[in-house]
Design a protein around this nucleic acid. Structure first.
Lengths: 345, 345
DNA sequence: GTTAGCACTCTGTTTAGTAGAGTGCTAACA
DNA sequence: TGTTAGCACTCTACTAAACAGAGTGCTAAC
């Protein structure tokens, strides 16, 4: 669709004014606030055209106009310029990132926190563990006379552990030997590849004790499962209280219900993993409950593999430019961190 | 304070009706709903007396009356009977508890969830790790050519781990030897007893490598710290949306702000650890922001040591009886679990 | 001590009226 | 043909008045 420069300018003003104020924008307001050199009347005419073209909507006859989903789409596709972060913002992010980063999970958690704080919206960060870590080896650590701790070490430094019962009469040396044999079998397998099939093979090795075998099977499978599941980090669910769109308690309840459906969130984020940056506006979103929301999502990869996905979810009236530049900055940050992690090996 | 039986009865009806409906209770309503065999007029007189005595309050002249904080206090002190849970409730709790319990943290998390679901209020569960676990031993597990994973095993089966850098030229055997020596030094110490003082002693043993020493020191101290801190589990922050007291967004915001102050929550719960069951009503609470809320708190111990604390936080209009019986049931449940844990050793 | 009756008070809701903001249309102007 | 000024019209948000409903307190009678 081709719009005259003047229409484009007016549309942009309306969108940005509405994003900033959350109030419908009227022709006189535009003429007063922005020096376009044209009268309110002509702005009215242009606005009327833009409404016919589907870019604007009127809440009621005598309110100003608000951008339609189509307008936001046009805005992000052909008007927005990435725009760098201010030094202040960048300093804030750097500060928050260095606050406390001990494990990989901490990194994701920090990312979620920063994302929500910077954008004043809900943030979602999904860590795709399955593809990022492989089984390295396992080890039994003695706990007490009847129990060992089974530690499973992944090649990315992730450690999982659980308590297992030692079969009666079994010596610690035998347990260690067992760990070595199982480790050899599973070494290098991605954790989500460890299914019941892989474990059946082990049966012969451990056949001398059915009970131990059963509990090991359960433990390894459970750990495998917990790695298959992507892990989800949420941030800023409190931020939305400040958005005028959510001044109604019921709307908040609705959104929070959606955010509790972890399964759905994962599907949602996974659906957008192909493209680097995905912006879903209003009704474009297939999932009910957030169809008057927009989502901006970015995927980060390492060697072509999807490592994780981050997203910002908020009202369609969202600071698209700001969100994108924050994500961009975080993206670079994370890529650096993950690359460094890998170089260390 | 001595009240006539009739006054007592009327007060109880008002409290329980208000708890159930959240609406001020009027004399006619009482006469209609409850068959007391007396007319509204006499109920009015009694209510007038009760107001003078400080048990009732009038939101305005022509509304009914609502219980004062003093009334709730009287109610929980001398009217309430513990009351057993319904079979249905008990079955629900049992079911939720068996859903997924893998680690100690899971138990606390489940407790929080159950508590909030059963009481429709916010629940807080504080796990007092410091007193419940002692250092057992540590071990280095190889990760890659430059890094080991330091595992610290506590006697209750808790495992902490972090990545440490291997000093240039140091062999794995030396690392193992080091682990043994440090383990011997720290064995049996409660994790919160491991301060910088304890670690200074180690210096001689590890003096041959300053860098490793520094990073070990940091790791152990950090793990010690994370154990010193009690861990807090929250449940049901979404439940409060259904309480009429929180139909105002600002009140929700206020409460959520309080719940974010983890430090304050810990102080709050710790303050009530002495008594077995503590009920704090309205203004009795010292902490601002929740002075129109009530809190019911129970502490569970093992061999005299405080293992944890659970609490329900909600509007003063709270189902005190129900909350207490749920807590009672959970208390027994947890005691059984913890005792079994200990027997195993 | 208990009850019925009644005037009084306060809230929440409905109704009417008004100011404010914005639009759409028309006619005039460059 | 594009632009502007003027004006009638529409819709909302706010305010004030009116009114029904619920509850109380008081008095007088049982």
């Amino acid at each position: 669709m081709v719009l005259s420069d003047r229409k484009k300018k007016i549309l942009q003003i309306i969108i940005e004014d509405y994003i900033a104020t959350a109030e419908p924008v009227g022709s006189r307001t535009i003429a007063r606030k922005y020096d376009l050199g044209i009268s309110p009347a002509i702005i009215r005419n242009e606005m009327s055209d833009l409404e016919l073209l589907g870019f604007l909507e009127q809440p009621h006859t005598s309110a100003g106009r608000i951008p339609s989903a189509q307008a936001y789409r046009y805005y992000v596709d052909s008007m927005i310029e990435p725009g760098a972060l201010t030094d202040n913002d960048r300093a804030l992010i750097d500060g928050w990132f260095h606050e406390r980063v001990r494990s990989i999970d901490d990194i994701f958690q920090s990312t979620a926190k920063i994302l929500s704080r910077m954008t004043k919206n809900v943030s979602l960060v999904m860590a795709n563990r399955a593809t990022s870590s492989a089984f390295s080896y396992m080890r039994f650590l003695p706990l007490d006379s009847h129990h060992d701790i089974l530690c499973i070490i992944a090649d990315d430094g992730h450690v999982d552990h659980c308590v297992v019962e030692i079969p009666l009469g079994m010596e610690q040396e035998e347990m260690d030997y067992l760990a070595t044999r199982i480790s050899n079998k599973l070494h290098g397998l991605h954790l989500n590849q460890i299914g019941s099939g892989t474990l059946e093979d082990l049966h012969d090795d451990v056949a001398n004790d059915k009970m131990l075998f059963a509990s090991l099977l359960r433990a390894i499978r459970q750990i495998g499962l917990s790695h298959q599941e992507q892990k989800m980090f949420l941030g800023g669910t409190k931020q939305i209280f400040n958005q005028p769109e959510f001044k109604d308690v019921n709307r908040i309840k609705e959104l929070l219900s959606v955010l509790e459906e972890e399964k759905m969130l994962k599907d949602m984020l996974q659906a957008g993993e192909d493209s680097g940056l995905r912006i879903t506006i209003g009704g474009e979103n297939k999932f009910s409950g957030i169809q008057d929301c927009s989502m901006i999502q970015a995927t980060y990869r390492l060697n072509g593999q999807v490592v994780g996905t981050m997203a910002v979810l908020g009202p369609t009236r969202m600071e698209y430019g700001k969100v994108i530049s924050v994500m961009d900055y975080l993206h670079k940050y994370l890529t650096t961190i993950f690359n460094k992690e890998q170089e260390l090996k």
